[in-house]
Amino acid sequence: MLEKGKSYRYGRDVNTDLIIPARYMSTTDPDELASFCMEDIDKNFVKTVRKGDIIVAEENFGNGSSREHAPIAIKASGVQCVIAKFFARIFYRNAINIGLPIFEIPEAVDDIQYGDILEYDIDKGWFKNTRTGREFQAKAFTPEVKEIFDVGGLIPLIKKQLGKA
Protein backbone atom coordinates (compact mmCIF):
# COMPACT_ATOMS: atom_id res chain seq x y z
CA MET A 1 0.00 0.00 0.00
CA LEU A 2 1.40 3.39 -1.00
CA GLU A 3 1.68 5.83 1.89
CA LYS A 4 3.24 9.20 2.58
CA GLY A 5 4.97 10.65 5.64
CA LYS A 6 7.47 13.14 6.95
CA SER A 7 11.03 12.22 7.89
CA TYR A 8 12.50 12.79 11.33
CA ARG A 9 16.23 12.59 10.57
CA TYR A 10 18.83 11.99 13.32
CA GLY A 11 22.55 11.18 13.58
CA ARG A 12 24.39 8.12 14.85
CA ASP A 13 24.07 6.32 18.22
CA VAL A 14 20.46 7.33 18.93
CA ASN A 15 20.45 5.15 22.02
CA THR A 16 17.44 3.82 23.90
CA ASP A 17 18.03 6.31 26.75
CA LEU A 18 17.44 9.08 24.18
CA ILE A 19 14.41 7.37 22.64
CA ILE A 20 12.77 6.95 26.06
CA PRO A 21 14.67 8.00 29.21
CA ALA A 22 14.42 5.77 32.29
CA ARG A 23 12.65 8.56 34.19
CA TYR A 24 9.55 7.77 32.11
CA MET A 25 9.70 4.00 32.43
CA SER A 26 7.45 3.71 35.46
CA THR A 27 4.70 2.63 33.10
CA THR A 28 4.18 0.05 30.37
CA ASP A 29 1.38 2.00 28.66
CA PRO A 30 2.34 2.55 24.99
CA ASP A 31 0.52 5.89 24.60
CA GLU A 32 2.05 7.30 27.79
CA LEU A 33 5.53 6.18 26.71
CA ALA A 34 4.93 7.76 23.29
CA SER A 35 4.21 11.11 24.91
CA PHE A 36 7.90 11.31 25.98
CA CYS A 37 9.44 9.73 22.88
CA MET A 38 12.72 11.33 21.68
CA GLU A 39 12.34 14.12 24.27
CA ASP A 40 16.07 14.51 25.01
CA ILE A 41 17.09 14.61 21.35
CA ASP A 42 14.18 16.42 19.67
CA LYS A 43 11.60 18.36 21.68
CA ASN A 44 9.55 18.94 18.51
CA PHE A 45 9.08 15.25 17.81
CA VAL A 46 6.11 14.62 20.10
CA LYS A 47 4.50 17.95 19.18
CA THR A 48 4.59 17.40 15.43
CA VAL A 49 4.74 13.67 14.69
CA ARG A 50 1.80 12.31 12.71
CA LYS A 51 0.68 8.80 11.89
CA GLY A 52 2.67 7.56 8.92
CA ASP A 53 5.82 9.57 9.62
CA ILE A 54 9.22 7.89 9.52
CA ILE A 55 12.36 8.07 11.68
CA VAL A 56 15.61 8.07 9.69
CA ALA A 57 18.97 7.79 11.46
CA GLU A 58 22.59 6.97 10.86
CA GLU A 59 24.57 4.10 12.42
CA ASN A 60 23.80 2.11 15.56
CA PHE A 61 20.19 3.18 16.12
CA GLY A 62 18.78 1.89 19.42
CA ASN A 63 22.06 1.03 21.13
CA GLY A 64 22.36 0.65 24.88
CA SER A 65 19.58 -0.65 27.09
CA SER A 66 17.40 -3.62 26.15
CA ARG A 67 14.26 -1.65 27.02
CA GLU A 68 11.45 -2.59 24.67
CA HIS A 69 9.82 0.64 25.81
CA ALA A 70 11.89 2.28 23.04
CA PRO A 71 10.32 0.61 19.98
CA ILE A 72 6.96 0.57 21.82
CA ALA A 73 7.13 4.37 22.27
CA ILE A 74 8.12 4.88 18.62
CA LYS A 75 5.34 2.66 17.33
CA ALA A 76 2.68 4.22 19.58
CA SER A 77 3.75 7.70 18.45
CA GLY A 78 2.43 6.81 15.00
CA VAL A 79 5.80 6.34 13.32
CA GLN A 80 5.36 3.82 10.53
CA CYS A 81 8.91 2.53 10.37
CA VAL A 82 12.55 3.34 11.13
CA ILE A 83 15.28 3.48 8.50
CA ALA A 84 18.91 3.46 9.66
CA LYS A 85 22.36 2.60 8.37
CA PHE A 86 22.28 -0.22 10.90
CA PHE A 87 20.58 -1.03 14.18
CA ALA A 88 21.89 -2.18 17.55
CA ARG A 89 21.22 -5.87 17.99
CA ILE A 90 18.66 -5.95 20.81
CA PHE A 91 16.69 -3.02 19.36
CA TYR A 92 16.50 -4.85 16.02
CA ARG A 93 15.01 -7.94 17.65
CA ASN A 94 12.64 -5.90 19.82
CA ALA A 95 11.29 -3.85 16.92
CA ILE A 96 10.60 -6.88 14.74
CA ASN A 97 9.12 -8.73 17.73
CA ILE A 98 6.54 -5.99 18.39
CA GLY A 99 5.74 -5.41 14.72
CA LEU A 100 7.59 -2.11 14.18
CA PRO A 101 9.08 -2.33 10.68
CA ILE A 102 12.76 -1.36 10.47
CA PHE A 103 15.00 -1.22 7.43
CA GLU A 104 18.75 -0.89 6.93
CA ILE A 105 19.19 1.34 3.84
CA PRO A 106 22.42 3.39 4.17
CA GLU A 107 21.99 5.19 0.82
CA ALA A 108 18.51 6.37 1.82
CA VAL A 109 19.85 7.75 5.10
CA ASP A 110 22.47 9.75 3.17
CA ASP A 111 19.81 11.19 0.86
CA ILE A 112 17.08 12.06 3.36
CA GLN A 113 17.00 15.28 5.42
CA TYR A 114 14.86 16.24 8.40
CA GLY A 115 11.40 17.12 7.14
CA ASP A 116 11.65 15.46 3.73
CA ILE A 117 8.38 13.93 2.57
CA LEU A 118 8.70 10.25 1.72
CA GLU A 119 6.43 8.04 -0.32
CA TYR A 120 6.68 4.42 0.63
CA ASP A 121 5.32 0.91 0.55
CA ILE A 122 6.23 -0.86 3.81
CA ASP A 123 5.34 -4.36 2.61
CA LYS A 124 7.66 -4.00 -0.36
CA GLY A 125 10.39 -2.13 1.57
CA TRP A 126 10.25 0.63 -1.06
CA PHE A 127 10.83 4.35 -0.34
CA LYS A 128 10.95 7.52 -2.44
CA ASN A 129 12.27 10.88 -1.31
CA THR A 130 9.91 13.40 -2.95
CA ARG A 131 12.48 16.19 -2.54
CA THR A 132 15.26 14.48 -4.50
CA GLY A 133 13.20 12.04 -6.51
CA ARG A 134 15.48 9.19 -5.49
CA GLU A 135 14.01 5.77 -4.81
CA PHE A 136 15.30 3.13 -2.42
CA GLN A 137 14.67 -0.56 -2.03
CA ALA A 138 15.40 -2.33 1.28
CA LYS A 139 17.00 -5.76 1.17
CA ALA A 140 14.65 -8.65 1.90
CA PHE A 141 14.43 -9.79 5.53
CA THR A 142 16.14 -13.06 6.43
CA PRO A 143 13.61 -15.96 6.54
CA GLU A 144 13.35 -16.13 10.35
CA VAL A 145 12.81 -12.36 10.60
CA LYS A 146 10.34 -12.38 7.71
CA GLU A 147 8.33 -15.13 9.40
CA ILE A 148 7.87 -12.86 12.46
CA PHE A 149 7.40 -9.67 10.42
CA ASP A 150 4.70 -11.20 8.19
CA VAL A 151 2.40 -12.09 11.09
CA GLY A 152 3.00 -8.78 12.91
CA GLY A 153 5.33 -9.91 15.69
CA LEU A 154 6.67 -12.75 17.80
CA ILE A 155 3.61 -13.27 19.99
CA PRO A 156 1.22 -13.73 17.02
CA LEU A 157 3.76 -16.18 15.56
CA ILE A 158 3.99 -18.19 18.79
CA LYS A 159 0.20 -18.25 19.11
CA LYS A 160 -0.03 -19.51 15.54
CA GLN A 161 2.59 -22.18 16.19
CA LEU A 162 0.80 -23.30 19.36
CA GLY A 163 -2.55 -23.34 17.57
CA LYS A 164 -3.86 -20.54 19.80
CA ALA A 165 -4.24 -17.87 17.10
Binding site: G64, S65, S66, I90, N94, N97, L154, I155, I158
Partner: peptide, 30 residues
Protein backbone atom coordinates in the same frame (compact mmCIF):
# COMPACT_ATOMS: atom_id res chain seq x y z
CA UNK B 1 18.13 -11.92 29.98
CA UNK B 2 15.80 -9.01 29.40
CA UNK B 3 18.48 -6.52 30.34
CA UNK B 4 21.29 -5.39 28.10
CA UNK B 5 23.96 -6.23 30.67
CA UNK B 6 22.97 -9.89 30.60
CA UNK B 7 26.22 -10.40 28.69
CA UNK B 8 27.87 -10.28 32.17
CA UNK B 9 27.60 -14.04 32.70
CA UNK B 10 30.11 -14.65 29.90
CA UNK B 11 32.66 -13.71 32.59
CA UNK B 12 32.18 -17.10 34.20
CA UNK B 13 32.23 -19.03 30.94
CA UNK B 14 28.55 -18.87 29.95
CA UNK B 15 26.89 -17.91 26.69
CA UNK B 16 24.73 -14.98 27.76
CA UNK B 17 22.94 -12.42 25.62
CA UNK B 18 20.55 -9.56 26.24
CA UNK B 19 17.04 -9.69 24.79
CA UNK B 20 13.85 -7.64 25.10
CA UNK B 21 10.56 -8.21 26.87
CA UNK B 22 8.74 -9.93 23.99
CA UNK B 23 11.64 -12.30 23.42
CA UNK B 24 11.54 -13.10 27.14
CA UNK B 25 7.81 -13.83 26.94
CA UNK B 26 8.42 -16.12 23.96
CA UNK B 27 11.32 -17.88 25.66
CA UNK B 28 9.31 -18.44 28.84
CA UNK B 29 6.39 -19.92 26.90
CA UNK B 30 8.36 -22.09 24.48
Amino acid sequence: GADSHSCTYGGIHAFAAGIGSTDLAGAWVT
